[in-house]
Structures are given as C-alpha cells and as structure tokens.
Design a protein around this nucleic acid. Sequence first.
DNA 1: TCGTATGATGAAAACGTTTTAAATGGGCGA
DNA 2: TCGCCCATTTAAAACGTTTTCATCATACGA
Lengths: 356, 356
Amino acid sequence: MASRSKPVSSGNSPANSRGKPTLRTIADITGLAVTTVSRALANAPQISIETRNRVRQVALDIGYSPDRAAQRLKTGRTNVIAVLLEPHEEILGYGTSVMAGIAKALQGTAYHLIVMPNFLNTANIDAINYIIRNSMADGLIFSRTEPLDPRVMLLSENGFPFVTHGRTELATAHPFVDYDNFTFAYEATRRLIAKGRRRLALISGPAGYTFAGHIQHGFMTAVREAGCAYEILSDIDLDSPAGAIRDRIRRRYAENDPPDGFTCGGEVCALATITGMTDCGLTLGLEYDIVAKQTSQLLGAIQPRVDTIYEDLTATGEHMGRILLRRIAGSTDINELQLLLNPELPFETQPASVAD
Amino acid sequence: MASRSKPVSSGNSPANSRGKPTLRTIADITGLAVTTVSRALANAPQISIETRNRVRQVALDIGYSPDRAAQRLKTGRTNVIAVLLEPHEEILGYGTSVMAGIAKALQGTAYHLIVMPNFLNTANIDAINYIIRNSMADGLIFSRTEPLDPRVMLLSENGFPFVTHGRTELATAHPFVDYDNFTFAYEATRRLIAKGRRRLALISGPAGYTFAGHIQHGFMTAVREAGCAYEILSDIDLDSPAGAIRDRIRRRYAENDPPDGFTCGGEVCALATITGMTDCGLTLGLEYDIVAKQTSQLLGAIQPRVDTIYEDLTATGEHMGRILLRRIAGSTDINELQLLLNPELPFETQPASVAD
DNA sequence: TCGTATGATGAAAACGTTTTAAATGGGCGA
DNA sequence: TCGCCCATTTAAAACGTTTTCATCATACGA
C-alpha cells in the first residue's frame, strides 16, 4: 500500500521524467491502470467502449505516441523495414524512386524505412545475415536477383520476411515484384522491326542477373520470329559507364554490318548509344532507331525520338512495400505476394494496387 | 536466496528465450554478474583488464550483439540518423548519392540511417516536428535550405542536432555542409567568357533556396566584371522537367539576341539546353557553349563537349554524416561543424576529411 | 590488530511497453 | 440467499539494457 499509491489524476502533470507523455501519464489523468490504458489504445474488446474512447481522447489531447523502443523490446517486433541499397542504384535515381515508393506504402503504418548500403561490392549476403541474426528489421527489400540467389535462399531458410525486386528460379516460391522484362524486350524489339530495322543489337543487363536473361530471351524471341540479323553487344551492359558504351558503339560501327536498331535496357545506355552513333555521323530516326526502357522523365524530353517503354519504379517500390507488409502480417498466399508488372498497363490498373 | 540463484555457468546454454544471446547469457557463461558484463563490454576502467578481455572473448564467441531496443529504452538515445528525402531528389540519384555518403560516415558506428520521405510538397516542418517530439532520431540531415529556413529555426530552438546541405542567413550559426555555388557559377561563367561568349544566360536553382541566390550572385559577378550581356532565364529552373527547359530554350532562341553561352546548375538542364539548341540547328562548341555543374558521370560521357565543374555528392553526404556525429557527441565548436566545399579541390584534400 | 582506502564486482531499480494471471463487482439463475 | 459467470479492470512480471548504490575482499598505514 505504501508503495506508489495512485496519484489519482494529478491534474495537469503532462509527462514523465524525460518530458514525454507515456501510458503512465494517461493512466494518472484518467485514473485507470496502465494495463487498461494500453489495452484501450490497442482497441481491445474487453475494455468498455466508453473507456476506450476516453483514453483515446486523452491520448490525443496530450499528444501521446507510444515509445517505439519499449514496444520493440517487449514484443520483439522492430517495426522497421530495411532496404538494401546497391551501388548501381546511384544512377538515375533508381534507389530513390524505389524508396519513395516503399515509403509511400509504409505511410500511416508503424513501420520505418532504414537503408543499409552495400559498400563491399560483394553479394550482400553478409549484410543479410547480420540483419537476420540481430533481428534488425521485420522485413527486407532488395533488388537484382540472380536465378539461384543465395540471399533468397538464406532468407527463405530462416523464414525471414522479404520481397525482392526481380524473380529467381528457385524451387521454393517467394514474394517478389518484377517487371516483365521479357515482354519489354520482345515488344521493344518488335517495334524496331516494325520500323523496318533488320540488323538489331541488344544492350542487356549485367550477366548473372535474372532480369538480364529475361531481356535477352525477349529480344531473341522477337528477332528469331522475324528472322533478323542480331547480336548482343559484348563487353558492355546497362551498368557500364556511359563512356564505355559510347566507345563500344563506335568500335562496333567501324566493323562489318553495323546494327541499325538498338534495344536498350536503360536510359543512360540509350543516350550513350546515341552519342556513339552521332559521333559516327548517323542520325537517330534516319539511319537507325532505338527503343529503350524508360524509368524517368529524362529521356522523353531529351530525345523524343527515342521510342520508350516505361517502367514505374516508384510503383514498384509501393507494391513491394505493400506485399512485404502482407507477408509480415502472416500471409502465405503466394498469389498476393507475387506481382509481375506489365509494361503496358499504367500503375492504377495493376491488380495489387486495388487489392487493399 | 531462493530467488534465482546463479546457474553458475550453465555450460553450453547459448541463448535466451528468444534465441538471441544477451548480457545474461554471457553472465551465465562467465559466472559474472550482468552488471559486470555490461561494464566490461563498455570498457569501463573499473573492471579488471582480464575480466574485460574474457567477457569480450565470450561475447565474440557466442556472437553477442546488444539489443538496440533495450539500449534505446534505457538510455533514451535512438542511435538513429534520419534523412529527409525530398521529391526533387529523385532525379539523377541526388538522394542516393548523398545517402550512400552518409551511410559511409555512419559505417562502424552504432547509428542507422532511416529515410523520411516528404510526400506533402510542403516545407517539411511537420515531419521535423514529429521527429523531435517523438524523439525518433538522434540527429537529422536535410537539404535545400532557405535563407530564413523555418526548419533550421525549429531545430535550433529545440537544440536538436542536425546538419543541412546548404547554408542559411540566420543569425545563429548551425552545422552545415555546402558547396561553394558562388564560386561554381563565377568560374563557370568566366570559362564561357574565356571561350569568347558574350551573351550569357543562367539556369539557376528554384527561387527561394539559398543556393540559387549564390549561383546567381556568382553569375552576376562574372558577367558584370566582363561587361557582357546577360540574362537569367525566367520561368524555368534546375527542377523544371527537361521538356520544359528545352521548350524554353527554343522560345528564347526565336527572340532577339539569343544567348551564346549557358551556365547550367545541373546535368539534366544542360542536356535539355543542348536539345533545345540542337532543335534550332545550333551546335555545341560552335555557335554556343555550356558550362554545367556535374554530379554524376552521365554528362561527361554523353556530351564531352559540355564543360563541367564537379560536385561530389557522396563526399557531401559523408561530411554531413561525420559532422552530425560530432554534433551529437556534443561538439559546439562551429569550426568543425561547418564546411564549405570548394569546387576545385577533389575530395581527398578537403579539410574535414582528414580531421578524423 | 584495527580501521580504512582501494579495486573489483554485484544487486536492484529503472526505462515504457505488453501480457499473463488475478481481482472486483454486479447480475442472474436456482 | 448463495454461488457462479460475465464484463471490466488491475497487479505484476517480463523484455535487455544501463546506472546507482552497495558489497566484498584485499592491502595498507598506523
């Protein structure tokens, strides 16, 4: 009894020792117990509806918000989503767009987005191990999957919630959002063919990534259907510095039977290709054409004559965020955890967008 | 006595209920008290050196790492740095570069980087208020300051540690990292003049931001020194869509005395300018010149004839991170909390880089 | 031999939550 | 009237740290 008898509504005592209102503050004001307040705020059915409302009102009045550290300590949930940032993502705002999307999905939830950059250019399996072992997040998002991605395997084995940007060829299904790069490359290449181009070249993603294979597959399917000459430009890929791509194009043009149509997996690489061709005295739309994947507004304005197919990275991020939340909430229904975005459809009409 | 007598080294008991080793685990293994273990790991001088080593070894062996939530709850420190992400930062990887730099500075420390995107296009004063009130981070980083930036005022008043990318004109000094945009614009414009250009135009930052003023000031100083004709292109700025800039250039060229030299504050805007001029039948390096600020490898490779002056955003981020850590650690020495990066010097030779 | 300074360790409380288990009191059937 | 159940509410423990204060040898000067 002598120990801490309830101060019975200490009136205007607004906060605790640190100055921030806590459950205890609300308890003192309402005359309820901390337990009750906690339950009321959690909307527990066992608390009477009047009490719930009263508590909520007081919480609002004094500007209460729960202490994340305490919640995390008690529940074991971190309320954190981690995104692995790759060096390649610096270019053209890939990372920023995706993160903006993720953040959008996380808006209004208790989740925060933390960024874990991968400095070592290694596969970031160590970072993932670290995150799992120290339970630093409730879920993980990363991009650029490989067909047999060791990161996916590690996470799957540990039952750690994650979503990838990109698919794998692993037996066990896992949550992902992916852009249909096959269709992209197929359609892009067909557009070149429709423009009358017959000697086609592809600048694809870096070898080893699943999406690079999809792009090549789409390209190959289109050129074989049409029976065109084709080549996949060696020594360079989407991640190559623009200068390297430009030089490669110049070199290629000096050789026999240069391409007259380019399927480019990215904007920078399209610009670099144009630069190289311009240096050789060729004009886009006249002697050759380009169809490129577009992920920003840059290309459309700079080079309107580059035909593009759009990939909405912010939407991708938003989908990944939503799917991850579902996964964390316990969903195992793979249908609502996987999403293949269609190059044609705008964001609004995508299925998962209306799912919740 | 009956209560919890020490299990005296329960041998191979590796972890707690949740499966993660804790201080208690180490305490049980070593036979020490939790207090002692905590102190040993904190390298407290009162703990004998042998004990410290032994504890550290055991911690290493069992893969202990402290629970952030518990630390945070107890100490009130979050070990989190928040960075406010602006919409404009999607373009050309500004945000990603800066974040990569910040993360680099945070590497090896206990700090995590969390991203708070600013969706409302408003001044993000609300987000900052939220961060302060709920003590969601130990420090804050944001960019694009205004001369009388209300965010800076709010944070200063609350004594909340922060670093800005950009200066203000407020009376009370605050930590910042800034690029010397005056010198950039001054030198850029002088280069145009040196190339013989005499009708100069500027595409500056959006009105209202401090750095836009600096750029204009540098530009004006150079053109007045040389007595050239000049103009600051109205209706557009660095943040304008590339298409808008291109159109504006075309329109301007249709009028009297079009410019023959452009000082561009960014790469996209330089490319858009080139596009507009090309549309008017003009060739870069022949009829006109451009000097632009470069923040990526894009422009150099695409348009080598654009003269550029480099701003290293990753380095900027790294400096901001380091300065913020100093500030959080309690430094009030304004000399080591402010840094004006010189356009000429490469990163390695900057003062703050060697400071620690 | 005693008291005390010293160097090392330990017990317990606290941070703010959630959760398990228990208490309270009224209503109701028998 | 009694016992029981239901609807609410509460007490207390726990999550894993850090920190305040206390304990305990041991050594030391007298």
